[in-house]
Design a binder for these strands. Structure first.
Lengths: 193, 193
DNA sequence: ATATAACTGACGAACGTTCGTTAAATTCGA
DNA sequence: TCGAATTTAACGAACGTTCGTCAGTTATAT
């Protein structure tokens, strides 16, 4: 399917150069066709972009949902650290998460509204799942706290800081160090004793 | 000074639309002149961009250095939380920090090398200062730990997560919640008891 | 003090290039 | 042979940049 090849190349260019900096000519060249041929598969640049965006969203959301559905242990230490590892794997395996992050925080102005809607959709879902997990752990007295909001937000903060390090991403050792440090302090901050 | 007006408008457009998305015509229009007139003050788009970048760097660096120089208390709780507040203030007061962040993480490809150098310069300096502060606090047994690297990286992680929330920045309440949550868990994670 | 020279900032016009997009012609596989 | 995919050709618009020019100001020299 040529459409997928085009979307793959588009993903790459959108991620590196942003919406405005990505040119249809170069995307087409990467696939081995002329830029006008793209219009046989997509209505235009916006259409191509939004399809890439929705693919990336779907990948991220389904990966995370799948992870949460397969863990049902009462071991938050394993489950949460595993989630951090999942995020790192996702980021390093394909470009979609980097693309997603770039467009979440610096969207092309004329598509900001549409993008924001998709972003909020994912964030809400993940946050809701996390909150319920944390509530279970709090009730089981396996982690500290009275409300689930605090550990949820704190954990999301750890995820964000790791993501930022991944985006910056020129130093594998620094990533490991920051992950270890943030995780150690976070875990001590929410566990008993 | 017209040069400063141009840089101000350029900062705004670079921040919102990125390097490629910012056009000299619109920047000039904002100042009330034609794009050709910009060339009387700057050699070209790159020159304008790099001057804006260096201004932003200087603002950020001097603000942080000044903060660290004026605090010399033995109260890490106050000093660290104050630093988070400083970052939030910096971000909300002028656009330079948002511009700085965008270009740190998603630089225009042909200037990536030059930008990275400036970014690393600031990061190293801030990290060094923080490490020495944390070492002092550890030695004074006012916070927990054996090495200063762990709390430093963890704290930098909290800063990053707050920055990300600021960039996302459509929800003041969510920012407060995440700040409080991250800070609470972080502080519990590095303090005795 | 006056005339001249140099400098500054801004301008219209135009450069070549690239952009996204459309239309028509052509190739190619079922 | 029919239809879809790709091409060539061309479009107007915008891009960053260069040029020559022209006021207005400042500095110099007579």
């Amino acid at each position: 399917m040529k459409s997928n090849e085009i979307k793959e190349a588009a993903l790459k260019y959108f991620t590196i150069h942003g919406y405005e900096g990505a040119s249809l000519s170069l995307i087409a060249e990467e696939v081995g066709m002329k830029k006008q041929s793209i219009y046989a598969h997509f209505k235009g640049k916006d259409d191509l972009f939004l399809q890439v965006l929705r693919d990336a969203k779907e990948t991220e959301l389904s990966s995370k949902l799948q992870y949460f559905s397969k863990i049902d242990s009462q071991n938050p230490k394993l489950d949460l650290y595993g989630f951090l590892q999942l995020v790192i794997d996702l980021f390093q395996k394909n470009e979609q998460l980097k693309f997603w992050l770039r467009m979440s925080f610096f969207p092309p102005a004329h598509l900001a509204k549409a993008i924001e809607k998709e972003v909020i959709d994912i964030e809400d879902k993940v946050q809701l799942i996390l909150e319920s997990k944390f509530q279970d752990w709090i009730d089981a007295k396996v982690i500290l706290g009275d409300v689930s909001k605090t550990p949820t937000f704190a954990f999301l903060g750890v995820v964000d800081s790791i993501l930022l390090e991944l985006v910056y991403g020129n130093d594998e050792q620094r990533l490991k160090d920051k992950l270890e440090a943030s995780w150690t302090v976070f875990w001590r901050g929410i566990s008993h004793q």
